[in-house]
């Protein structure tokens, strides 16, 4: 592979990693628990800003050309972890108000409005995260320590991303496979019945909003540490719908399906315009990309609402034809509990 191609491929892989974490997190909220978090992108943005200001150092550095709060220069994993913390706290704050005694579609509205307002704040309060210009020149983590060539560093970062993805996947997998995951799906399927069985629906929803918020923040932090800049243009509220489309198309409720969705929508569909000649007026191709996303959502919701890879059915084999492998009876087929 030529080094230009290697650069391109490794960058794509990092984007894929970011999308994977984000889509799994959104799937936990939307696909598994039924919390329609239309403000998801805010938590990714918050993570990115947190990581950026904690990596950049005080805002007098770089000649003081950008203004932001809490500037610090912390060693690598710290900004990432701090981003997760901030993402969790912020989503707990918004969730504790927005999820309260409201119908699920009202909740969606509150999150959506919050997302649009957050962009307003970040753009117009200039001292916060440098306003509309956004933050730039965020140094890449460990780049000074590992002493790699730029190309090798790209692959090094792909490795870091792979580790993050693996951790996120295992975390979400454990959650969704457990009895807790079953409770979450029960809340999704019938909120009142779940409440009547003793599940604190509000707390369960808040829990996935917080976990998803923390993961979204991690994905944002990982992205900004790689690309080095972040501004209001990177997280327009409609970006949530890209991830939403990925979840719906891939197969909501199924982590593998969602991973496929992450490959199709945020990565492939975003990259495709690079390879087709620019036509129409300025911004035409970009506008059409959104139209395609909208049409894809409609087509899938109509013809295949379960997505490309639907949620798996958990067979326990109580009937006897398929015995569960630990049901205490003879095992004829190996079926695992949960997914």
């Amino acid at each position: 592979m030529s080094s230009a191609l290697q650069f391109y491929m490794s960058t794509l892989l990092v984007y894929l990693g970011v999308s994977l974490i984000a889509c799994w997190a959104l799937n936990l909220q939307i696909g598994v628990t039924g919390v329609l978090n239309l403000g998801f992108i805010v938590f990714q943005a918050l993570g990115a800003y947190t990581a950026a200001v904690l990596t950049l150092g005080p805002d007098t550095s770089n000649g003081g050309f950008q203004h932001y709060v809490f500037g610090a220069e912390l060693p690598f994993p710290v900004p990432l972890l701090a981003a997760a913390g901030v993402g969790a706290l912020a989503s707990a704050g918004l969730g504790s108000i927005g999820l309260r005694r409201l119908r699920s579609d009202y909740q969606a509205m509150v999150f959506l409005v919050a997302a649009i307002i957050a962009t307003d704040v970040a753009t117009n309060v200039t001292g916060l995260v440098n306003g509309a210009a956004g933050l730039s020149l965020v140094p890449q983590p460990l780049s000074a320590n590992v002493g790699l060539s730029p190309l090798d560093y790209q692959w090094f970062y792909v490795g870091l991303m792979a580790i993050l993805c693996a951790v996120a996947f295992l975390l979400i997998r454990r959650l969704t496979l457990s009895p807790l995951g079953r409770s979450l799906r029960a809340v999704r399927d019938h909120e009142d019945a779940a409440e009547a069985l003793g599940y604190n629906v509000y707390r369960l929803r808040l829990m996935v909003v917080v976990i998803g918020g923390a993961l979204a923040a991690v994905s944002g932090a990982a992205l900004v540490e790689f690309i080095g800049s972040w501004g209001p243009g990177s997280w327009f509220y409609q970006e949530t719908f890209v991830y939403l489309a990925a979840v719906i198309i891939g197969g909501s409720g199924n982590n593998i399906g969602v991973a496929l969705g992450a490959l199709i929508v945020p990565v492939a569909l975003n990259e495709l315009p690079r390879f087709i000649p620019d036509f129409g007026g300025p911004g035409f191709v970009d506008a059409m990309r959104w139209v395609v996303i909208g049409v894809a959502i409609l087509v899938f919701l109509y013809f295949r609402p379960q997505g490309i890879i639907p949620e798996k059915r958990n067979r326990f084999g109580l009937a006897g034809t398929v015995r569960h492998r630990w049901s205490g009876l003879a095992t004829r087929a190996r079926v695992r509990l949960g997914r």
């Binding site: 079953r182 799906r185 399927d189 019938h190 109580l318």
Partner: peptide, 14 residues
């Protein structure tokens, strides 16, 4: 008011 996308066994376990 079953949980429609859970299996019967899962409904009971829930």
């Amino acid at each position: 008011s079953e949980f429609p996308r859970l299996t019967v066994t899962e409904n009971l376990l829930a």
